[in-house]
């Protein structure tokens, strides 16, 4: 076992992990932050997307120890109390989810896009979401939600 420390959603945490413990398992099992989902565990689907030092990553394809000392943001870190983050609100408003399984990853990926591109076009959004798979929606409303959410984040 080794000791790992990181900041998760602004809170300093420390835990004991094995070398092989994935970041997503540390978040879900150890920290009980189950908003981050595991869809495939094979680096394809993006349901496990979180931010590490501001960059969107697949937390199923990163060891917890690789995030030692980093600042991690998960879906739980976006809302301000009962007030949804503008990107979450946009997904609700535009019906950007059905079963909701892919949604945490979609939203974490979308907020990373919005940080770089305040007014993404439909093509920008579709290109950016190439690593996030959804089995329900057919993507149309997700794209609408991300375009609206990115603009709302500037407001």
């Amino acid at each position: 076992m080794a000791t790992v420390s990181m900041t998760i959603n602004g809170k300093q945490v420390t835990g004991d992990v094995e070398g092989r413990t994935l970041l997503v398992d540390f978040l879900r099992e150890d920290q009980r932050l189950t908003g981050t989902h595991v869809g495939c565990d094979t680096s394809q689907c993006g349901a496990c997307t979180v931010h590490v030092d501001g960059k969107a990553v697949k937390s199923c394809t990163m060891l917890a120890l690789q995030a030692d000392g980093a600042a991690v943001t998960t879906i739980e870190g976006l809302a301000d109390g009962d007030v949804l983050h503008p990107m979450q609100e946009a997904f609700r408003e535009h019906h950007g989810l059905q079963c909701g399984f892919c949604t945490p990853g979609m939203i974490m990926s979308a907020t990373a896009l919005a940080a770089r591109n305040a007014a993404p076009t439909e093509a920008d959004v579709r290109h950016h979401l190439e690593g996030n798979l959804c089995r329900c929606t057919g993507y149309h409303n997700i794209v609408k939600a991300v375009m609206a959410g990115a603009r709302a984040m500037q407001a």
């Binding site: 680096s43 993006g46 969107a56 990553v57 990163m62 990926s109 896009l113 190439e130 690593g131 996030n132």
Partner: peptide, 9 residues
């Protein structure tokens, strides 16, 4: 290459 998350790592 790949997607944004792959390119970040």
């Amino acid at each position: 290459i790949g997607d944004p998350m792959v390119r970040n790592r």
